[in-house]
C-alpha cells in the first residue's frame, strides 16, 4: 500500500507501523467543547435578554420618551443592573468568540496569531471590565452633583 500523504507537517492519516493510521496530535483539552457549550447556552439567554431590552426601550417605553431619569430609575433595581451586565458580558464574549474563530482560521503564523489574539483579547476584556465597573458603581447622586 502506498504511503498516505497528509497535509504538510501533519501526523493525521499517516500509515502507522503495525497497522492503523495516525490521529491528530494536539494538546488534549476540553476547552473547545466547553467553549462551544457555553456559547450555545449563553446565546440562547442572550436572544431573550436583547429582545426584551429592545422591546422595552423601543416599543413599550418608546424612543421619544427615553430620558436619563428613566434609565436611572430602572438602574436603582439591582435586578436590572445584573440584567445589563449580563447583556454586556454575553454580547462581548460572543463577539470575542467570533473574532477568535476568524483569527484562528486566517492568521496562520503561530507567532502572529498569538500577537493578534493578545491585542484583541486585551481590548475586548478591558472594555468589558470598564463597562461592568461603570454599571455596578454608577452613583446617581454623584452624577447629579456633577451636572
Amino acid at each position: 500500500m502506498s504511503t498516505v500523504i497528509a497535509p504538510a507537517g501533519s501526523a493525521r492519516g499517516q500509515a502507522r507501523r503495525g497497522g492503523g493510521y495516525e490521529q491528530p496530535q494536539g494538546r488534549r483539552s476540553n476547552f473547545e467543547l466547553y467553549s462551544w457549550f457555553f456559547m450555545r447556552l449563553s446565546g440562547l439567554i442572550l436572544i431573550f435578554l436583547s429582545l426584551y431590552h429592545l422591546v422595552w426601550w423601543n416599543l413599550i417605553v418608546g424612543v421619544e420618551h427615553l430620558s436619563a431619569d428613566l434609565v436611572r430609575e430602572r438602574w436603582q433595581n439591582p435586578f436590572w443592573r445584573f440584567y445589563n451586565v449580563a447583556l454586556l458580558l454575553f454580547a462581548m464574549l460572543h463577539g470575542l468568540n467570533g473574532l477568535r474563530y476568524s483569527i484562528e482560521d486566517y492568521v496562520r503564523k503561530p507567532g502572529a496569531q498569538v500577537a493578534v489574539k493578545a491585542v484583541a483579547y486585551t481590548l475586548i476584556l478591558t472594555s468589558m471590565a470598564i463597562g461592568a465597573f461603570a454599571l455596578f458603581t454608577y452613583n446617581p447622586a454623584v452624577a447629579a452633583a456633577a451636572r
Binding site: 498516505v4 500523504i5 497528509a6 497535509p7 501533519s10 493525521r12 492519516g13 499517516q14 493510521y21 495516525e22 490521529q23 491528530p24
Partner: peptide, 10 residues
C-alpha cells in the same frame, strides 16, 4: 485527494 483520504482514515 491524498490528504482528504488521510483525514478520512484518521
Amino acid at each position: 485527494m491524498d490528504a482528504f483520504f488521510a483525514q478520512y482514515r484518521s
